Amino acid sequence: MITLDELRAGLAARSGLLVARSGGRELPPLRGWETGAVLAVTTSGSTGEPKTVLLGADALTTSAELTHARLGGPGTWLLALPTTHIAGIQVLVRSVVAGTEPGVMDLAPGFRATDFATAARPVLAEPGRHYTALVPTQLARLVATEGPGLAAVRQFDAVLIGGAATPPALLERSRRLGVRVVTTYGMSETSGGCVYDGLPLDGVHVRLVDGRVEVGGPVLALGYLGGEPFGEWFRTGDLGRIRDDGTLQVLGRADDVIISGGENIAPAGVERVLTSQRGVREACVVGLADPEWGQVVAAAVVPEDPGDPPDVDELCAAVGDAVGRFAMPKRVVFVPELPLRGPGKVDRRAVAGSFE
């Protein structure tokens, strides 16, 4: 875990590599262009071999400055994410840039709404603006009941939500309850979130090449350890589209596309339909091998009320109406919660394994 003092010193010196996450392996000495890095974050390797992302001080601090500019100015942050991942580290970077002392939530016992409220109290007592960053699962727990967690999160000037796709129903409910939610898109390779509510931060550029999202600008990492430095553009593993209003809509990872009977099905599109249905809290859609269709669509659904789950036929019909019959789930299971990895992303491999 990286501390605020370590990060402050590293950013000031612009040297001395801090390792946020090594994937359990010892990193070799830096050489050549790699020596400009102050932070190393190793990816989970969930979609391939783990890669160690090397980030420079300029990219990290620029990301923080652009975030404050978008949100309305520097403020005091509450750290409610682990600093083994870029989202948590950026809360510390923003605090260094703002010259403020962040509040820190103890995550050892897990994330509880009452603990969030306790950790938020001294942060909200500070003058000026107040911010925090969460993953969708944390937000869902805060808005589940009219308790102290909801009362606290409503007082923040902005609540950044990232790390995983946020169900539209959760966003709608949160905003209706007065939570100032800002959705973010980004990754370690872009110093964290670089697209807020669909719009790139100032100076950040987004384009689509063959349907794949590419990002350019001053927030890009230097490159991967042992590889070549990044150029002007970083090609992500995500599919996207540009809406009529110019905002970016991320459609999910290209690796997750399900090919069933010759049809390409984006799980994120099916998930959006499922989570918009009454009685559905969360959903994860995966492809299962099938001798006839190649793959079939399967959905793990977390119901709002485990004792009264929604009707499976109605869920499938909703998908058929919105996406097409080819995208209708062939298998649906109700689960109490979805397995997570990293800072809050759904573990799709574990979900697929639950159907075996």
Rank of each mutant, 00 (worst) to 15 (best):
S354W: 03
V323Q: 01
Y185P: 05
C194H: 01
V179R: 00
A13R: 14
G149V: 08
A120D: 01
T61W: 08
G240P: 06
F111W: 06
A151Q: 09
L208Q: 05
G287T: 07
R281M: 11
A69G: 06
R94K: 10
L66D: 00
G262Y: 08
Q277R: 15
Q249H: 13
L171S: 07
V257N: 05
L239D: 00
L71Y: 08
L134M: 11
V312N: 03
A350D: 03
L160K: 01
E263G: 00
A152C: 08
G32V: 08
L160T: 01
L199C: 05
V38S: 06
R241W: 12
V250M: 10
S63F: 11
L171C: 12
V285P: 00
G353C: 05
R21K: 11
G72Q: 06
G186I: 10
A300H: 00
L18E: 07
G88K: 03
A318I: 12
P303K: 09
P28W: 02
T137M: 15
F334Q: 04
F230M: 10
D58F: 12
L18Q: 07
D5W: 02
A300G: 01
E314R: 14
E304W: 04
L150Y: 07
R241S: 11
L288M: 10
A59L: 07
T184M: 13
W293N: 09
G240E: 02
V41G: 02
D238L: 13
P200T: 09
Q90K: 07
W233T: 09
E146W: 12
G103I: 10
V19D: 05
S174G: 14
L81C: 06
R14D: 15
G262L: 13
T166L: 14
A133M: 13
V302G: 07
E6K: 02
V38H: 02
E228W: 04
G216Q: 08
L177A: 08
G246K: 03
R235N: 05
V302E: 06
K345E: 15
V286D: 02
G56P: 01
S44W: 10
W233H: 06
G353E: 14
R173S: 11
P267Q: 05
